[in-house]
Design a binder for these strands. Structure first.
Lengths: 216, 216
DNA sequence: GTCTATATGAAGATAGAC
DNA sequence: GTCTATCTTCATATAGAC
Protein backbone atom coordinates (compact mmCIF):
# COMPACT_ATOMS: atom_id res chain seq x y z
CA UNK A 1 0.00 0.00 0.00
CA UNK A 2 3.06 2.19 -0.28
CA UNK A 3 2.14 5.07 -2.55
CA UNK A 4 4.46 6.74 -5.04
CA UNK A 5 3.15 10.21 -4.31
CA UNK A 6 5.21 13.40 -4.19
CA UNK A 7 6.46 14.70 -0.87
CA UNK A 8 3.54 16.31 0.86
CA UNK A 9 4.26 19.92 0.18
CA UNK A 10 5.38 19.63 -3.43
CA UNK A 11 3.09 20.33 -6.32
CA UNK A 12 4.46 17.56 -8.47
CA UNK A 13 6.77 14.61 -7.98
CA UNK A 14 9.09 15.07 -10.94
CA UNK A 15 12.39 16.76 -10.17
CA UNK A 16 14.10 16.58 -13.55
CA UNK A 17 12.58 17.50 -16.86
CA UNK A 18 13.32 15.53 -20.00
CA UNK A 19 15.15 17.70 -22.53
CA UNK A 20 12.57 20.04 -23.97
CA UNK A 21 11.51 19.30 -27.51
CA UNK A 22 11.39 22.08 -30.08
CA UNK A 23 13.82 24.20 -28.14
CA UNK A 24 15.67 27.45 -28.80
CA UNK A 25 19.42 27.55 -28.16
CA UNK A 26 21.74 29.45 -25.81
CA UNK A 27 20.42 31.76 -23.13
CA UNK A 28 16.83 31.47 -24.26
CA UNK A 29 17.09 27.77 -23.60
CA UNK A 30 18.51 28.19 -20.10
CA UNK A 31 15.85 30.74 -19.23
CA UNK A 32 13.10 28.52 -20.57
CA UNK A 33 14.24 25.43 -18.71
CA UNK A 34 14.72 27.34 -15.49
CA UNK A 35 11.33 29.02 -15.78
CA UNK A 36 9.79 25.61 -16.40
CA UNK A 37 11.05 24.30 -13.07
CA UNK A 38 9.89 27.39 -11.19
CA UNK A 39 6.49 27.70 -12.85
CA UNK A 40 5.85 24.00 -12.28
CA UNK A 41 6.58 24.21 -8.58
CA UNK A 42 5.39 27.69 -7.57
CA UNK A 43 3.07 28.63 -10.41
CA UNK A 44 3.33 31.47 -12.89
CA UNK A 45 2.04 34.19 -10.54
CA UNK A 46 4.18 32.82 -7.72
CA UNK A 47 7.37 33.21 -9.75
CA UNK A 48 9.00 36.55 -10.46
CA UNK A 49 11.30 37.56 -13.28
CA UNK A 50 13.96 38.01 -10.62
CA UNK A 51 13.44 34.45 -9.38
CA UNK A 52 14.04 33.13 -12.88
CA UNK A 53 17.06 35.36 -13.42
CA UNK A 54 18.60 34.45 -10.09
CA UNK A 55 18.24 30.72 -10.79
CA UNK A 56 20.01 31.35 -14.13
CA UNK A 57 22.79 33.34 -12.42
CA UNK A 58 21.65 36.45 -14.24
CA UNK A 59 20.41 39.84 -13.19
CA UNK A 60 16.67 40.42 -13.53
CA UNK A 61 16.60 42.78 -16.48
CA UNK A 62 18.79 40.47 -18.56
CA UNK A 63 15.73 38.32 -19.16
CA UNK A 64 14.24 41.14 -21.19
CA UNK A 65 17.03 40.84 -23.74
CA UNK A 66 15.57 37.44 -24.62
CA UNK A 67 11.85 37.70 -23.94
CA UNK A 68 9.69 40.83 -24.04
CA UNK A 69 7.79 39.85 -20.88
CA UNK A 70 7.27 37.12 -18.32
CA UNK A 71 4.06 36.22 -20.11
CA UNK A 72 5.99 35.50 -23.30
CA UNK A 73 8.19 33.03 -21.42
CA UNK A 74 5.11 31.22 -20.18
CA UNK A 75 3.52 31.33 -23.61
CA UNK A 76 6.49 29.62 -25.21
CA UNK A 77 6.48 26.86 -22.61
CA UNK A 78 2.76 26.28 -22.93
CA UNK A 79 2.98 26.28 -26.70
CA UNK A 80 5.81 23.74 -26.69
CA UNK A 81 3.79 21.56 -24.35
CA UNK A 82 0.71 21.53 -26.51
CA UNK A 83 2.59 21.15 -29.79
CA UNK A 84 4.54 18.19 -28.47
CA UNK A 85 1.41 16.57 -27.06
CA UNK A 86 -0.42 16.88 -30.35
CA UNK A 87 2.61 15.73 -32.30
CA UNK A 88 2.98 12.59 -30.21
CA UNK A 89 -0.67 11.71 -30.40
CA UNK A 90 -0.74 12.15 -34.17
CA UNK A 91 2.45 10.16 -34.71
CA UNK A 92 1.08 7.33 -32.60
CA UNK A 93 -2.06 7.17 -34.71
CA UNK A 94 -0.10 7.05 -37.95
CA UNK A 95 1.48 3.79 -36.80
CA UNK A 96 -1.89 2.31 -36.09
CA UNK A 97 -4.24 -0.22 -37.62
CA UNK A 98 -7.65 1.27 -38.46
CA UNK A 99 -9.23 -0.55 -35.50
CA UNK A 100 -10.72 1.93 -32.98
CA UNK A 101 -9.46 -0.23 -30.11
CA UNK A 102 -5.90 0.00 -31.35
CA UNK A 103 -6.34 3.70 -31.92
CA UNK A 104 -7.61 4.37 -28.42
CA UNK A 105 -4.77 2.35 -26.94
CA UNK A 106 -2.23 4.20 -29.07
CA UNK A 107 -3.72 7.58 -28.23
CA UNK A 108 -3.77 6.92 -24.49
CA UNK A 109 -0.25 5.51 -24.45
CA UNK A 110 1.00 8.63 -26.21
CA UNK A 111 -1.10 10.87 -23.97
CA UNK A 112 0.21 9.24 -20.81
CA UNK A 113 3.80 9.07 -21.99
CA UNK A 114 3.71 12.78 -22.64
CA UNK A 115 2.62 13.30 -19.03
CA UNK A 116 5.31 11.00 -17.65
CA UNK A 117 8.17 12.09 -19.90
CA UNK A 118 7.43 15.82 -19.70
CA UNK A 119 5.72 16.02 -16.34
CA UNK A 120 6.77 19.60 -15.61
CA UNK A 121 5.83 20.77 -19.06
CA UNK A 122 2.47 19.06 -18.73
CA UNK A 123 1.80 20.60 -15.32
CA UNK A 124 2.64 24.08 -16.53
CA UNK A 125 0.75 23.61 -19.79
CA UNK A 126 -2.37 22.49 -17.98
CA UNK A 127 -2.41 24.69 -14.90
CA UNK A 128 -1.15 27.97 -16.33
CA UNK A 129 -2.64 28.06 -19.83
CA UNK A 130 -5.53 30.17 -18.59
CA UNK A 131 -3.14 32.86 -17.33
CA UNK A 132 -2.27 33.86 -20.88
CA UNK A 133 -4.00 36.82 -22.50
CA UNK A 134 -6.22 35.89 -25.47
CA UNK A 135 -3.53 37.17 -27.78
CA UNK A 136 -1.04 34.55 -26.66
CA UNK A 137 -3.45 31.93 -25.35
CA UNK A 138 -5.98 31.52 -28.14
CA UNK A 139 -3.70 29.79 -30.67
CA UNK A 140 -2.74 27.30 -27.99
CA UNK A 141 -6.36 26.58 -27.13
CA UNK A 142 -6.78 25.67 -30.79
CA UNK A 143 -4.03 23.07 -30.53
CA UNK A 144 -5.58 21.71 -27.36
CA UNK A 145 -8.93 21.41 -29.07
CA UNK A 146 -7.41 19.36 -31.85
CA UNK A 147 -5.99 16.83 -29.40
CA UNK A 148 -9.31 16.53 -27.62
CA UNK A 149 -11.32 16.21 -30.80
CA UNK A 150 -9.04 13.48 -32.05
CA UNK A 151 -9.89 11.22 -29.13
CA UNK A 152 -13.56 12.11 -29.37
CA UNK A 153 -13.61 11.11 -33.02
CA UNK A 154 -11.95 7.78 -32.35
CA UNK A 155 -14.43 7.04 -29.58
CA UNK A 156 -17.42 8.02 -31.69
CA UNK A 157 -16.20 5.91 -34.58
CA UNK A 158 -15.85 2.91 -32.28
CA UNK A 159 -19.33 3.44 -30.89
CA UNK A 160 -20.82 3.73 -34.37
CA UNK A 161 -19.20 0.44 -35.34
CA UNK A 162 -20.43 -1.31 -32.24
CA UNK A 163 -16.90 -1.84 -30.92
CA UNK A 164 -17.32 0.43 -27.91
CA UNK A 165 -20.26 0.35 -25.54
CA UNK A 166 -20.68 3.40 -23.39
CA UNK A 167 -23.83 5.43 -22.74
CA UNK A 168 -22.23 8.87 -22.87
CA UNK A 169 -19.23 9.17 -25.20
CA UNK A 170 -18.22 12.65 -24.12
CA UNK A 171 -18.06 11.65 -20.46
CA UNK A 172 -15.91 8.64 -21.27
CA UNK A 173 -13.51 10.84 -23.24
CA UNK A 174 -13.40 13.39 -20.42
CA UNK A 175 -12.63 10.63 -17.91
CA UNK A 176 -9.87 9.18 -20.07
CA UNK A 177 -8.32 12.57 -20.65
CA UNK A 178 -8.59 13.52 -17.00
CA UNK A 179 -6.98 10.42 -15.58
CA UNK A 180 -4.05 10.93 -17.96
CA UNK A 181 -3.60 14.59 -17.09
CA UNK A 182 -3.28 13.76 -13.44
CA UNK A 183 -0.32 11.45 -14.06
CA UNK A 184 1.98 14.45 -14.48
CA UNK A 185 1.50 15.36 -10.82
CA UNK A 186 2.41 12.06 -9.18
CA UNK A 187 4.73 10.40 -11.69
CA UNK A 188 8.40 10.27 -10.88
CA UNK A 189 11.02 8.63 -13.04
CA UNK A 190 13.05 7.34 -10.09
CA UNK A 191 10.24 6.14 -7.86
CA UNK A 192 8.38 2.96 -8.37
CA UNK A 193 6.39 2.47 -11.54
CA UNK A 194 7.98 2.56 -15.01
CA UNK A 195 6.41 4.98 -17.48
CA UNK A 196 5.64 2.15 -19.86
CA UNK A 197 3.68 0.33 -17.18
CA UNK A 198 1.62 3.43 -16.50
CA UNK A 199 0.96 4.00 -20.20
CA UNK A 200 -0.03 0.40 -20.89
CA UNK A 201 -2.23 0.23 -17.80
CA UNK A 202 -4.02 3.46 -18.64
CA UNK A 203 -4.56 2.30 -22.22
CA UNK A 204 -6.23 -0.77 -20.77
CA UNK A 205 -8.29 1.37 -18.39
CA UNK A 206 -9.43 3.50 -21.32
CA UNK A 207 -10.60 0.47 -23.25
CA UNK A 208 -12.41 -0.78 -20.18
CA UNK A 209 -14.13 2.58 -19.73
CA UNK A 210 -15.28 2.39 -23.34
CA UNK A 211 -16.63 -1.10 -22.79
CA UNK A 212 -14.11 -2.76 -25.09
CA UNK A 213 -11.49 -4.21 -22.77
CA UNK A 214 -9.24 -6.67 -24.55
CA UNK A 215 -8.91 -8.66 -21.34
CA UNK A 216 -12.59 -9.16 -20.64
CA UNK B 1 -19.76 16.49 -30.64
CA UNK B 2 -20.60 19.72 -28.86
CA UNK B 3 -18.49 19.84 -25.75
CA UNK B 4 -19.55 21.30 -22.40
CA UNK B 5 -16.16 22.87 -21.74
CA UNK B 6 -15.55 26.21 -20.05
CA UNK B 7 -14.99 29.31 -22.16
CA UNK B 8 -11.48 29.11 -23.51
CA UNK B 9 -9.75 31.50 -21.19
CA UNK B 10 -11.42 30.48 -17.96
CA UNK B 11 -9.82 28.15 -15.51
CA UNK B 12 -13.03 26.41 -14.58
CA UNK B 13 -16.58 26.36 -15.91
CA UNK B 14 -18.49 26.87 -12.66
CA UNK B 15 -19.64 30.42 -11.99
CA UNK B 16 -21.59 29.98 -8.80
CA UNK B 17 -20.48 28.07 -5.76
CA UNK B 18 -22.88 25.97 -3.73
CA UNK B 19 -23.25 27.38 -0.22
CA UNK B 20 -20.08 26.46 1.60
CA UNK B 21 -20.43 23.75 4.19
CA UNK B 22 -18.98 24.23 7.67
CA UNK B 23 -19.01 27.98 7.33
CA UNK B 24 -18.33 30.89 9.67
CA UNK B 25 -20.87 33.72 9.85
CA UNK B 26 -20.87 37.44 9.02
CA UNK B 27 -17.92 39.14 7.43
CA UNK B 28 -15.69 36.09 7.65
CA UNK B 29 -18.21 34.32 5.50
CA UNK B 30 -18.32 37.04 2.87
CA UNK B 31 -14.55 37.22 2.75
CA UNK B 32 -14.26 33.47 2.45
CA UNK B 33 -16.79 33.16 -0.35
CA UNK B 34 -15.28 36.06 -2.25
CA UNK B 35 -11.76 34.71 -1.87
CA UNK B 36 -13.01 31.35 -3.10
CA UNK B 37 -14.19 32.86 -6.38
CA UNK B 38 -10.97 34.80 -6.89
CA UNK B 39 -8.59 32.00 -5.91
CA UNK B 40 -10.47 29.58 -8.15
CA UNK B 41 -10.20 31.82 -11.19
CA UNK B 42 -6.85 33.59 -10.75
CA UNK B 43 -5.05 31.39 -8.27
CA UNK B 44 -3.81 32.20 -4.79
CA UNK B 45 -0.65 34.02 -5.91
CA UNK B 46 -2.59 35.87 -8.58
CA UNK B 47 -5.04 37.31 -6.06
CA UNK B 48 -4.13 40.10 -3.66
CA UNK B 49 -5.63 40.97 -0.32
CA UNK B 50 -6.77 44.19 -1.95
CA UNK B 51 -8.54 42.23 -4.71
CA UNK B 52 -10.47 40.30 -2.12
CA UNK B 53 -11.32 43.39 -0.10
CA UNK B 54 -12.44 45.33 -3.14
CA UNK B 55 -14.75 42.52 -4.24
CA UNK B 56 -16.23 42.59 -0.71
CA UNK B 57 -16.63 46.39 -0.81
CA UNK B 58 -14.07 46.71 1.94
CA UNK B 59 -10.74 48.41 2.30
CA UNK B 60 -7.69 46.13 2.21
CA UNK B 61 -6.63 46.22 5.84
CA UNK B 62 -10.13 45.33 7.02
CA UNK B 63 -9.44 41.74 6.01
CA UNK B 64 -6.86 41.57 8.78
CA UNK B 65 -9.54 42.11 11.39
CA UNK B 66 -10.89 38.71 10.38
CA UNK B 67 -7.88 36.73 9.23
CA UNK B 68 -4.26 37.12 10.32
CA UNK B 69 -2.95 36.67 6.76
CA UNK B 70 -3.91 35.81 3.21
CA UNK B 71 -2.50 32.36 3.79
CA UNK B 72 -4.97 31.79 6.62
CA UNK B 73 -7.86 32.58 4.28
CA UNK B 74 -6.58 29.99 1.83
CA UNK B 75 -5.97 27.49 4.61
CA UNK B 76 -9.55 27.72 5.82
CA UNK B 77 -10.90 27.18 2.30
CA UNK B 78 -8.63 24.23 1.65
CA UNK B 79 -9.47 22.73 5.01
CA UNK B 80 -13.21 23.06 4.40
CA UNK B 81 -12.76 21.42 1.00
CA UNK B 82 -10.92 18.42 2.35
CA UNK B 83 -13.12 18.00 5.41
CA UNK B 84 -16.26 18.06 3.30
CA UNK B 85 -14.81 15.62 0.79
CA UNK B 86 -13.85 13.16 3.49
CA UNK B 87 -17.18 13.60 5.28
CA UNK B 88 -19.14 12.85 2.11
CA UNK B 89 -17.09 9.81 1.22
CA UNK B 90 -17.42 8.40 4.73
CA UNK B 91 -21.15 9.05 4.90
CA UNK B 92 -21.65 7.34 1.56
CA UNK B 93 -19.83 4.25 2.78
CA UNK B 94 -21.93 4.05 5.94
CA UNK B 95 -25.03 3.60 3.79
CA UNK B 96 -23.40 0.78 1.90
CA UNK B 97 -23.63 -2.98 1.72
CA UNK B 98 -20.30 -4.68 2.48
CA UNK B 99 -19.83 -5.54 -1.20
CA UNK B 100 -16.65 -3.90 -2.60
CA UNK B 101 -18.47 -3.12 -5.85
CA UNK B 102 -21.15 -1.19 -4.01
CA UNK B 103 -18.50 0.52 -1.97
CA UNK B 104 -16.50 1.64 -4.99
CA UNK B 105 -19.64 2.92 -6.67
CA UNK B 106 -20.66 4.80 -3.51
CA UNK B 107 -17.19 6.24 -3.05
CA UNK B 108 -16.93 7.45 -6.63
CA UNK B 109 -20.43 8.92 -6.66
CA UNK B 110 -19.59 10.88 -3.51
CA UNK B 111 -16.17 11.85 -4.89
CA UNK B 112 -17.64 13.11 -8.14
CA UNK B 113 -20.59 14.86 -6.53
CA UNK B 114 -18.18 16.77 -4.36
CA UNK B 115 -16.40 17.95 -7.49
CA UNK B 116 -19.63 18.92 -9.24
CA UNK B 117 -21.40 20.50 -6.27
CA UNK B 118 -18.36 22.37 -4.95
CA UNK B 119 -16.37 22.85 -8.11
CA UNK B 120 -14.65 26.04 -6.99
CA UNK B 121 -13.82 24.62 -3.60
CA UNK B 122 -12.43 21.50 -5.26
CA UNK B 123 -10.32 23.49 -7.71
CA UNK B 124 -8.84 25.63 -4.95
CA UNK B 125 -8.37 22.66 -2.63
CA UNK B 126 -6.52 20.72 -5.29
CA UNK B 127 -4.47 23.39 -7.03
CA UNK B 128 -3.48 25.59 -4.09
CA UNK B 129 -2.95 23.12 -1.28
CA UNK B 130 0.77 23.03 -1.96
CA UNK B 131 1.02 26.81 -1.43
CA UNK B 132 0.42 26.42 2.28
CA UNK B 133 3.34 26.36 4.69
CA UNK B 134 3.79 23.02 6.47
CA UNK B 135 2.28 24.57 9.57
CA UNK B 136 -1.07 25.10 7.89
CA UNK B 137 -0.82 22.50 5.14
CA UNK B 138 0.26 19.35 6.96
CA UNK B 139 -2.99 18.71 8.85
CA UNK B 140 -4.86 19.01 5.56
CA UNK B 141 -2.54 16.55 3.84
CA UNK B 142 -3.48 14.12 6.57
CA UNK B 143 -7.16 14.46 5.72
CA UNK B 144 -6.36 14.00 2.04
CA UNK B 145 -4.42 10.86 2.80
CA UNK B 146 -7.38 9.39 4.63
CA UNK B 147 -9.65 9.87 1.64
CA UNK B 148 -7.11 8.28 -0.67
CA UNK B 149 -6.42 5.36 1.62
CA UNK B 150 -10.10 4.64 1.95
CA UNK B 151 -10.46 3.99 -1.78
CA UNK B 152 -7.24 2.01 -1.83
CA UNK B 153 -8.50 -0.24 0.95
CA UNK B 154 -11.78 -0.87 -0.80
CA UNK B 155 -9.97 -1.74 -4.03
CA UNK B 156 -7.52 -4.05 -2.27
CA UNK B 157 -10.32 -5.80 -0.42
CA UNK B 158 -12.14 -6.38 -3.71
CA UNK B 159 -9.01 -7.75 -5.32
CA UNK B 160 -8.33 -10.08 -2.40
CA UNK B 161 -11.86 -11.43 -2.70
CA UNK B 162 -11.56 -11.96 -6.44
CA UNK B 163 -14.27 -9.38 -7.17
CA UNK B 164 -11.92 -6.96 -8.91
CA UNK B 165 -9.43 -7.89 -11.58
CA UNK B 166 -6.70 -5.37 -12.19
CA UNK B 167 -2.93 -5.91 -12.44
CA UNK B 168 -1.88 -2.81 -10.52
CA UNK B 169 -4.28 -1.69 -7.80
CA UNK B 170 -2.53 1.57 -7.05
CA UNK B 171 -2.66 2.69 -10.69
CA UNK B 172 -6.35 1.90 -10.90
CA UNK B 173 -7.01 3.96 -7.78
CA UNK B 174 -4.89 6.83 -9.12
CA UNK B 175 -6.84 6.75 -12.39
CA UNK B 176 -10.20 6.74 -10.63
CA UNK B 177 -9.19 9.59 -8.35
CA UNK B 178 -7.71 11.58 -11.20
CA UNK B 179 -10.67 11.39 -13.52
CA UNK B 180 -12.91 12.58 -10.68
CA UNK B 181 -10.66 15.49 -9.75
CA UNK B 182 -10.80 16.80 -13.28
CA UNK B 183 -14.59 17.08 -13.22
CA UNK B 184 -14.35 20.23 -11.11
CA UNK B 185 -12.75 22.08 -14.02
CA UNK B 186 -15.30 21.39 -16.73
CA UNK B 187 -18.53 20.81 -14.85
CA UNK B 188 -21.14 23.51 -14.96
CA UNK B 189 -24.53 23.30 -13.29
CA UNK B 190 -26.32 25.13 -16.10
CA UNK B 191 -24.68 23.54 -19.09
CA UNK B 192 -25.51 20.12 -20.38
CA UNK B 193 -24.94 17.14 -18.17
CA UNK B 194 -26.67 16.72 -14.79
CA UNK B 195 -24.37 16.07 -11.84
CA UNK B 196 -26.12 12.78 -11.11
CA UNK B 197 -25.41 11.55 -14.62
CA UNK B 198 -21.72 12.38 -14.24
CA UNK B 199 -21.54 10.68 -10.85
CA UNK B 200 -23.32 7.52 -11.99
CA UNK B 201 -21.26 7.31 -15.18
CA UNK B 202 -17.97 7.74 -13.36
CA UNK B 203 -18.99 5.12 -10.81
CA UNK B 204 -19.54 2.77 -13.71
CA UNK B 205 -16.19 3.76 -15.26
CA UNK B 206 -14.48 3.02 -11.94
CA UNK B 207 -15.96 -0.46 -11.79
CA UNK B 208 -14.93 -1.07 -15.37
CA UNK B 209 -11.36 0.05 -14.58
CA UNK B 210 -11.31 -2.39 -11.69
CA UNK B 211 -12.53 -5.16 -13.97
CA UNK B 212 -15.87 -5.55 -12.21
CA UNK B 213 -18.32 -3.70 -14.42
CA UNK B 214 -21.90 -4.51 -13.57
CA UNK B 215 -22.83 -4.12 -17.23
CA UNK B 216 -20.31 -6.49 -18.71
C1' DG C 1 24.58 39.98 -23.91
C1' DT C 2 24.91 41.38 -19.54
C1' DC C 3 25.25 44.77 -16.34
C1' DT C 4 23.76 48.93 -12.86
C1' DA C 5 20.56 52.31 -11.87
C1' DT C 6 16.05 53.51 -11.72
C1' DA C 7 10.98 54.46 -12.70
C1' DT C 8 6.50 53.19 -11.17
C1' DG C 9 3.31 50.65 -9.10
C1' DA C 10 1.51 46.91 -6.14
C1' DA C 11 2.30 43.52 -2.72
C1' DG C 12 1.52 41.93 2.47
C1' DA C 13 1.00 43.78 6.66
C1' DT C 14 0.71 47.27 10.86
C1' DA C 15 -0.75 51.50 13.67
C1' DG C 16 -4.02 53.94 15.36
C1' DA C 17 -8.31 57.02 14.70
C1' DC C 18 -13.42 56.71 14.68
C1' DG D 1 -15.57 46.51 12.53
C1' DT D 2 -14.07 49.52 9.36
C1' DC D 3 -11.45 53.19 8.04
C1' DT D 4 -7.05 56.18 6.49
C1' DA D 5 -2.30 56.55 6.53
C1' DT D 6 1.81 54.34 6.19
C1' DC D 7 5.93 50.99 6.37
C1' DT D 8 8.69 47.85 3.79
C1' DT D 9 9.43 44.87 0.35
C1' DC D 10 8.87 43.32 -4.01
C1' DA D 11 6.84 43.39 -8.67
C1' DT D 12 7.41 44.34 -13.99
C1' DA D 13 9.77 46.85 -16.90
C1' DT D 14 12.97 50.62 -19.10
C1' DA D 15 17.35 53.38 -19.99
C1' DG D 16 21.66 53.41 -21.03
C1' DA D 17 26.68 52.10 -19.88
C1' DC D 18 30.22 48.49 -20.82
Amino acid sequence: MESPLPAASRRLAATAAAPLPDLPAGSRRVILETALHLFAERGYSGTSIRDIAKACNLQGPTIYSHYPSKEHVLAELVRIAHDEHLRRVRTALLDCQPDPREQVAAYVRAHVRFHTDFAMLAVVGNTELHMLSPDLGDPIFQVRKQSEQTLMEIAQRGIDRGVFHVPHAWLAVAAIGGMGLRVAFWFSADAGIPAKTVADSYADFALRILGAARNS
